[in-house]
Amino acid sequence: MKLAYAVLLSLVYVVLLLGFYAVHVRFLPVDVVLYSAVQDALAALAVLVALVVALRRFLPFTGFEALLLVVVWFLGGYAFAISVPTVLDRSLSFYILEKLEQRGGGIRRDAIGQVFTEEYLPEYRLVDVRLTEQLESGTVVIEGGCVKLTAHGKRLAAASRFFRTHLLPRKRLLAGAYTDALIDPFKNSPKGRIGYECG
């Protein structure tokens, strides 16, 4: 009996989540895809929690069981926000598949790099998208024509660098060979001032 109610309420949550998401992306402004999808998950959760509270006399759950269901619903909504709209919005892998399909099913291997620099960046407005995300996240500011890290951005950059250096695979398959190249991608970058730095 409890399982049937839990499944039914979970289906109601999925319908609410997809409904809020569809209305949001169709009719309302979206600053950052991930954040708006999480807002939709929270809005759907709030409606469902209100419904559960209103019907608590008729539901077979203890308070703790109801709390666990709320946690499961939130985690499901968060997983949806990250795994569906955010991945599709950000994924270079899906771009490759879509571009291959657009170009008749195949692109020469030696032209893939050209596709990224000449088509991917402008088609997806990648610089604008990523810069907007960073501004909205509070990790950068733009002052006097310069993009600058905030204190929050510095902390995230240091954490990311630590994770990349110490916790990413040291034997990762890239272009047919196992390598540790991505644990230090700046290793072969030019040293010293390049000319685009601020100040």
Rank of each mutant, 00 (worst) to 15 (best):
residue 2 K to E: 13
residue 4 A to N: 13
residue 5 Y to V: 15
residue 12 V to L: 13
residue 12 V to C: 12
residue 12 V to F: 12
residue 12 V to Q: 11
residue 15 V to Q: 06
residue 16 L to G: 01
residue 17 L to D: 10
residue 19 G to C: 04
residue 19 G to S: 03
residue 22 A to T: 10
residue 26 R to Q: 02
residue 26 R to E: 06
residue 28 L to C: 07
residue 29 P to G: 08
residue 29 P to E: 15
residue 30 V to K: 06
residue 30 V to D: 02
residue 32 V to W: 01
residue 34 L to W: 04
residue 34 L to G: 06
residue 34 L to V: 06
residue 37 A to P: 00
residue 38 V to E: 05
residue 43 A to E: 01
residue 43 A to H: 01
residue 44 A to Y: 03
residue 45 L to F: 02
residue 46 A to M: 05
residue 52 V to W: 10
residue 54 A to E: 15
residue 59 L to T: 00
residue 59 L to E: 04
residue 60 P to R: 10
residue 62 T to N: 05
residue 62 T to K: 04
residue 62 T to I: 01
residue 62 T to L: 07
residue 66 A to G: 04
residue 68 L to G: 10
residue 71 V to P: 02
residue 72 V to R: 15
residue 73 W to R: 03
residue 73 W to V: 02
residue 74 F to K: 13
residue 74 F to E: 03
residue 78 Y to L: 12
residue 81 A to Q: 00
residue 84 V to H: 05
residue 85 P to R: 01
residue 87 V to A: 04
residue 96 I to P: 01
residue 98 E to M: 15
residue 98 E to L: 11
residue 100 L to Y: 06
residue 101 E to A: 08
residue 102 Q to K: 12
residue 107 I to G: 01
residue 108 R to M: 11
residue 109 R to F: 03
residue 110 D to H: 07
residue 117 T to R: 15
residue 117 T to Q: 14
residue 117 T to S: 09
residue 120 Y to T: 09
residue 122 P to S: 13
residue 127 V to K: 15
residue 128 D to I: 08
residue 129 V to A: 14
residue 131 L to S: 14
residue 132 T to W: 11
residue 132 T to V: 05
residue 133 E to L: 09
residue 133 E to S: 00
residue 135 L to D: 02
residue 135 L to Q: 09
residue 136 E to R: 15
residue 136 E to D: 10
residue 138 G to T: 04
residue 139 T to R: 15
residue 144 G to F: 08
residue 144 G to N: 05
residue 144 G to H: 02
residue 146 C to A: 06
residue 147 V to G: 10
residue 147 V to T: 15
residue 150 T to D: 07
residue 155 R to E: 10
residue 156 L to P: 13
residue 156 L to N: 08
residue 157 A to F: 09
residue 158 A to R: 12
residue 160 S to A: 14
residue 160 S to L: 15
residue 161 R to T: 13
residue 162 F to L: 12
residue 165 T to Y: 02
residue 167 L to D: 01
residue 168 L to Q: 09
residue 168 L to R: 03
residue 169 P to K: 11
residue 170 R to N: 11
residue 171 K to S: 14
residue 171 K to E: 14
residue 174 L to Y: 09
residue 175 A to H: 10
residue 175 A to M: 00
residue 177 A to M: 05
residue 178 Y to N: 10
residue 179 T to H: 14
residue 183 I to S: 15
residue 184 D to C: 14
residue 184 D to T: 06
residue 186 F to A: 14
residue 187 K to M: 05
residue 187 K to S: 01
residue 190 P to D: 03
residue 190 P to H: 04
residue 193 R to W: 03
residue 194 I to A: 12
residue 195 G to I: 00
residue 199 G to C: 06
